[in-house]
Amino acid sequence: MKRSNKRIIPGFGLSMGVTVTLLSVIVLIPLASLVIFTAQLSFSDIIAVITRDRVLASFKVSFLTAFVASLINAVMGVILAWVLVRYDFPFKRILDGMIELPFALPTAVAGIALTSLTADKGIIGSFFARFGIKIAYTRAGITVALVFIGIPFVVRAVQPVLEKLDGSLEEAASTLGASRSRTFRQVIFPEIMPAVFTGFGLAFGRCLGEYGSVVFIAGNQPFETEITPLIIMSELQEYDYASATAIALVMLAASFLILFLVNLIQVRNSKILRGGGKGA
């Protein structure tokens, strides 16, 4: 049955053509030039470039901060999605509407604002400074900026799943005597897990490459708070295109891998969505 609908609906050729053409012009050809430029280096050169201590350290900083930030966003995202779907309370619409703000606000503006808030002189920074905790110009600062950038991803991935998940399963579970936390753990959690992973993956990918907001807040100390995109920038400034593109290629491979995993999960996820929507 699945195969037969291949050509029943018209427009396959046209939509395939437009999609592939635009995808090639905007995404694939430009990305290919990155690969071509890297190909100027031999394989061992590429390895030498990307295993330099400073580059490795920057990978560590980038991956670590992006991971922590996405983890925070995963937890907060589930809470936010849960609150927005299940509860009624004043100002709910405003809260809901604000989630996408990080998409709409220029990252540079966000970076500048967050830096002035979290520096020792700022409102948040001075509070933490009393306990001897520094935020701006440390890895904590980078994480704060990345949490800001990644907020919408998990919320918006989990929200539709929670909406589709009707209360009947939970009701059944609680009638059978399951406690609230057990219902959540064993009934709800498995259902929203793929969506959480999707959101986490997208946020992680986005955070890994973030530049605009991070440079303002990071302090940019080699080995401490220097992120990989900044290394790429500094290689470019030394007119070392080959190194810059080699490092960029590693980042690119990472983002593609993340996305591919996300899409694998999403295929399963959409089955749940469809099953929840239509199967009931």
Partner: peptide
């Protein structure tokens, strides 16, 4: 194809 279309979201703006 689906992954390729999503790719730009996770590509660093610098890249």
């Amino acid at each position: 194809l689906g992954s390729l279309i999503d790719l730009p979201v996770t590509v660093s703006p610098i890249i």
